[in-house]
Write a protein that binds this DNA or RNA. Structure first.
Lengths: 205, 205, 205, 205
DNA sequence: ATCTAAGCGAGACGGTACGTCACGTCTTGGG
DNA sequence: CCCAAGACGTGACGTACCGTCTCGCTTAGAT
């Protein structure tokens, strides 16, 4: 009569689930590091993870989705959102952080993935949002703080402003025509703030 | 009468058929329009162009190079480099042109190609140079003219300035977080010229 | 109860489909009949059998092995090894049977396969053993019976004797200089038994 | 008035180059020695001979015909048809010669070629005849001499008799079940002459 | 002493088949 | 009832040769 205690009895054989899932993502991650994203194949992941192919397809529809999942799994490090009295210094620091993260191996993979993703599926939209929005929203907060302190114009389209700051980074990453480093980050911020023009026209456009 | 230098020593054998080359590029272009790049297969191109597969491989090493070549072929319409008395107007007009060209299907195709192109093949370099750098160099000329007229600061890093203008376009194409249209082009140029900051400091940094 | 020895450790995964295997061999056989061996292509077999090419390669290394397997499959009808009181009659009957089987299309196919098979693969060995040696070993049994009855000399090299009987058949198939029919079979056996010479010397050589 | 006879209508233009023809046959021969017949490709021959492919096709319809031509070019050495007082010794010597020639590299190639040749084209028939008939007709002459001397029965089918002697050689060459050497040659001749049977029945069958 | 037609090398052409890889689905037996 | 293993049909890959077709250059007989 001592059989009544049976804490996890119901599902037959299922508990492998998380272990398999983890092994798959780990293997996918490693393979992308070795071969680059886009060279990732389900077969290789299955073999390396010691997992059946159907198990992978149970979670992800194709190699691209798996790649995105694997890239998202270990989130890109966020810049500390520490606030100093100078939002412009904060901005510079944050952009340097973004540049550093995205010019690393993982960051380049994410950028490539973002560009290569075909079809505007839900998954790929989510991926792009998730990758982009982190840095972008941090930047928005800083800029708004700067506006509140009167350091940044209030008559501008905030989205355009953010594109002006982060766009150049990904542009260089994709086109590869020049280095993407901290100096570049500083240059972006300073040039964007000051503007290119000489005309001192502070009126609203 | 010294003709002894003969760097390209007259090719022997049957010359390559321009007809075949043209048919291939045409078919590749059409298929990319129908299926998207990345769905482009050599087999399909060969079948549609009425050409043998080896003939394709004689010109391009793989589907990716062919895709780039096909995109390059029908030259992206260059903005007229017409110069008006106002270089800033010219700049705005040119950026609007770039945005127009890259909005819609073409833009994503180009972005995907750039992301996918790993090998530093000739085709890949040519693609980057022509597609990406073409607009950029036009912009550089305009900005230099503007500098000469005192409309744009001369103490800035020209490459950073150009990234500030063209980066946002590709950023939006890449991330897809907002529309890429003429209004955006105008916004970029005006915001970049004026700068984000409120401080009226026109001295050299 | 020691079951620890497990030489064929129970195959895992989905078992191979006998249906596919059968369809492949059937199609291969038909195609060889239509086009001749050597014109047999894996592609055609796959298409006709409604089977993927990799499935064929899973079983056979190349078209030649497949051809052999297809020829082997529909077993060459063995002569009944029925024994009558007269082994010499049995021999004649068996040789007629062999000639009948190998006359016509089949004979040239087999000869061509033998000539083409270079690699000492399993299939190639099996082909030689079954197709060529099958009849030969039957002949050996009959001759030994005839020796026991004193009808055939016991001082001869049995292998040479067998070559003397079956060699001429394949020789004609190979060179095609004369017909391969029942009359020829009879002639072979009678001539071989009686010998060409006139000298009546029954002593051991 | 002396132009009416025109059997070979005197070709105009540049005559065919014997140099090219020779180089082709030489290269074909060498390649067959290296790769085996059947691995011979027109491309390889053209490349090695420093000759254009069309030049090869001008002489031979396909690789098989070229292979045959190359094999026939350097004729297999004929046994000396020297006659001694003992035709049976002559026969033995001739068969040893045949065995020696055909068990060599070149002989094996010829045998394979003969077996593998598809379609009963004129060329392939000619090839088989040429290869086979040399030795065979020599044998026929010897046997007839032996008949004249009363050493060989006159009531036999000469073709069958010849098949009995030469068949075993090619049988072993193709099937490879036993050695093909001088001892075998001797065995064949002696066994064929003496016959397998014990019954001393010299009456006509 | 030209002319000129054929042969020549080279090599690109449209094809066919190769043997491989990965896809995404299915079918097993074991846990 | 899920899982690993792995076979399945499918389809594209990039390569090797096929046999044909230009090319521009010999080359040698006919003019």
């Amino acid at each position: 009569m001592s059989r009544h205690i049976d804490p996890s009895p119901r599902p037959r054989g299922r508990p492998r689930s998380t272990k398999a899932r983890t092994a798959i993502l780990k293997s996918a991650h490693d393979l992308m590091a070795e071969l680059g994203p886009g060279r990732l194949t389900i077969e290789a992941v299955a073999a390396r993870a010691g997992v059946g192919k159907p198990t992978i397809y149970r979670y992800w529809a194709n190699a691209q989705e798996l790649a995105m999942a694997a890239l998202l799994e270990q989130k890109l490090p966020q810049a500390s959102s520490r606030e100093t009295p100078s939002p412009l210094d904060d901005l510079e620091r944050q952009v340097i952080h973004v540049v550093t993260v995205f010019s690393g191996r993982r960051g380049r993979q994410v950028t490539q993935m973002m560009a290569a993703s075909e079809a505007d599926s839900e998954v790929s939209k989510a991926f792009r949002n998730q990758v982009i929005m982190g840095s972008r929203e941090q930047g928005r907060a800083i800029l708004e703080r700067a506006q509140a302190l009167g350091l940044v114009r209030t008559d501008l389209d905030m989205d355009v402003a953010l594109d002006l700051i982060y766009g150049p980074i990904f542009y260089r990453l994709l086109a590869g025509h020049a280095a993407v480093d901290a100096a570049f980050a500083t240059d972006i911020v300073r040039t964007a703030l000051k503007g290119l023009g000489t005309i001192v026209d502070r009126r609203t456009s």
